[in-house]
Simulated scan of single mutants.
Amino acid sequence: MHSFVPYIQLLRPRQWLKNLMLYFPPFLGGTLLQSNIAAGILPLAIFCMVSSAIYIINDILDISNDSHHPEKCNRPLPTGRVSIPAALLLAICLISSGISLASAYLPASFMLCLALYILISLAYTFKLKEYALIDLFCISSGFMLRLKAGGVAFNVTISEWLFLTVFLLSFFLSTGKRFSEKKRLGATAVRHRKVLDMYPRGFLQGLMCMSAAAVLVTYAMYAISKNSSLLLYTVPLCCFGLMRYMIRIQSGSSGDPTESLLKDGPLFATGLVWAIMVGWGIYGT
């Protein structure tokens, strides 16, 4: 049993939380209760398989850099608990399975979203992560393609304000993660991620503040467009969540969005209350 643990860790199951973005279109569109929830299980499983495969490939390429990181050095590949050939074989199986399932059971438009996600993610993993700003836009595109794929899977049209909000939020979180890495690793940051040396001092912090302000504006417009007073009241909650994330980063904690949500009590509570208030505002009135 213990021999399977490193392989499970290699999949990064905690990061599957990001794939719940596929359920945002029906949830926020007010059609989740009328939709066939089971129809979303396959798209979710496919994105979990494919995203895990991308993480594995990234870990293979970054094995040398991760060995210098205070936390990532304990991952299965740097420690040798999983061999590179075994990890590569697992990644190939996951990607091929995801593509096969999508092409066999889901619409062509979903397959297009999945193909773009794979291509951009692989391009990011192999080269684009080395270029300042481009790396942030690549990460953000992953969230946008999940959102679009969810709209396709549930046959829901995504509003313009929701599109902008998700893009800016993902850009904010990506910037925060980079800023956190640069702050925590200090002079050794470039040994872990070369692109961190390309961002001038204070740039990432300013970019994070700018994108946070933009998120608040677009989310406020989205809330107003829904004509729900309760949804409008979630704007201050959103503001608190953004500021809490920024405090967490400034204090030296990890900027990983998934880790921040799961390990930071106030941030987790904010997300939970937000989901309840939005759900009640959309479905309870």
Rank of each mutant, 00 (worst) to 15 (best):
Q9R: 15
K129D: 06
G40L: 01
L231T: 02
V152D: 00
V5H: 04
K183H: 12
I46Q: 06
G186S: 05
L22Q: 00
S180T: 06
A87I: 08
T79V: 13
I57E: 03
Y124D: 03
L204K: 03
R81P: 02
R201D: 11
R193Y: 05
L22K: 03
A153V: 04
V50L: 04
A123K: 07
F167E: 01
S180V: 06
S141M: 14
A187Y: 09
M111R: 12
L112G: 04
P85Y: 07
A213I: 15
P236C: 13
S100W: 10
K183R: 15
I139G: 00
L196I: 11
V278C: 14
A189N: 03
H68S: 09
I41K: 01
L28V: 08
M221H: 14
M210Y: 09
A91S: 07
I95C: 02
L106N: 01
K182R: 14
F110A: 10
I139S: 06
L133G: 00
M221I: 08
N58G: 14
S225E: 13
Y233L: 15
D135W: 02
G98W: 01
L169Q: 03
L90V: 06
S35V: 11
F171L: 15
V5D: 00
T234L: 11
Y117M: 07
L168R: 03
K129V: 07
L33T: 15
F27T: 01
